[in-house]
Computed example of a mutant assay.
Amino acid sequence: MAHAASSHERLRQFRELILAETGIRLPPSKDSMIAARLRKRLIALDLPTLDAYFEHIFDGGALSDELTPIIELVTTNKTDFFREPAHYAFLANRIIPEAVARTRPGQTTRFRFWSAASSTGAEAWSAAMVLARAAPKHKAFDWRILGTDISPRVLDKARHAIFPEADFAPVPADLREAYVMSARMNGQSVGRIVPELRAQVKFEALNLIEPPFPLEGGIDVAFLRNVLIYFEAPTQAQVIRSVSEHVRPGGYLVVGHAESMIVRLPGFKACAPGVYRKEEMH
């Protein structure tokens, strides 16, 4: 029984580590998922049991080396192109035209988009297609996108901008034709985002629970979607506040439809499901 208690205690210690490093609370009901996902590390390190792995990281001084692979294994990276499409329609039909309208005649419209939990990049690349499509309608429209995530592995995938052909199914046909190059790779049909979009988008590592963020202010729209649900209420409030500080007056914060009840942010007004506009100072 002592051994079982030890395993139980180790799993609790591991869950607390994940909470401290990522803000994600894993309940005891996720212990079997943790064990299953850590099996890769046991194989990689030639360790016989989960207890041996926990001893390796907590007692053997290997935690700093293992932290990145641990975060990679336990974080969820679910994402799709044009997920919750109403937000992209709002971007095209309201946010971009507003930004252009506030630009003085003869000046360039500077537009900055932040995908704050970018995962493998589908959100940022979807927004890039919308912005690229809007740009020719305006004489001087200078747009850039920043995608950030805690996981180096998904950031690497986002930068490469190569996805299975099936992943592009939600992308409207005209945008797919304009901005996705088809190819064959390892016998698979894949698509890659075109170079002119890749030049406008960059991806950087960032942990949302570790403010202040090394970002410029004046963000026109921050998408903080489908990540808040993994945090405890105090962490949700902290992350929302930290992200919102980078949004310019008159700019927008967008959360997932399932997260709209979470946002209680002074100085922001709800104007569509999951969409909040920062009040302008007068």
Results as ranks from 00 to 15, higher is better:
6 S>Q: 15
8 H>C: 09
8 H>I: 06
13 Q>F: 00
13 Q>L: 12
14 F>D: 10
20 A>S: 15
23 G>A: 13
24 I>F: 12
27 P>Q: 08
29 S>C: 00
31 D>L: 13
35 A>G: 13
36 A>C: 12
41 R>W: 08
41 R>K: 12
42 L>R: 14
46 D>H: 14
50 L>R: 15
53 Y>Q: 09
55 E>L: 14
56 H>A: 10
59 D>L: 13
60 G>S: 12
65 D>S: 15
65 D>R: 15
66 E>V: 15
68 T>F: 03
75 T>E: 05
76 T>G: 08
80 D>H: 06
80 D>Y: 02
83 R>N: 06
88 Y>S: 04
91 L>N: 11
92 A>T: 04
93 N>R: 15
96 I>Q: 06
103 T>F: 08
104 R>N: 00
107 Q>T: 03
109 T>K: 01
109 T>C: 13
111 F>Y: 13
113 F>S: 04
113 F>E: 05
118 S>G: 08
122 A>I: 02
127 A>R: 03
130 V>E: 04
131 L>G: 07
133 R>F: 07
133 R>G: 02
135 A>T: 08
139 K>R: 15
152 P>M: 08
152 P>G: 09
153 R>V: 05
153 R>M: 08
154 V>M: 02
156 D>M: 06
156 D>A: 11
159 R>I: 00
161 A>F: 06
161 A>R: 03
163 F>M: 00
165 E>R: 08
170 P>N: 07
172 P>W: 05
173 A>F: 01
178 A>M: 02
181 M>Y: 03
183 A>T: 04
188 Q>T: 07
189 S>K: 13
194 V>P: 01
200 Q>S: 11
202 K>H: 14
202 K>P: 00
202 K>S: 14
204 E>A: 15
204 E>K: 15
206 L>F: 14
209 I>P: 07
210 E>I: 11
214 P>M: 13
216 E>K: 15
219 I>Y: 10
223 F>Q: 02
224 L>Y: 11
226 N>P: 00
229 I>E: 11
229 I>Q: 10
234 P>M: 14
235 T>K: 12
237 A>I: 05
238 Q>I: 04
239 V>T: 07
240 I>P: 09
241 R>F: 00
243 V>N: 01
247 V>G: 04
250 G>A: 05
251 G>C: 07
252 Y>P: 03
255 V>M: 07
256 G>F: 06
261 M>R: 12
261 M>Y: 04
262 I>C: 00
264 R>M: 02
267 G>P: 09
268 F>H: 06
275 V>I: 15
275 V>A: 07
277 R>D: 02
280 E>C: 07
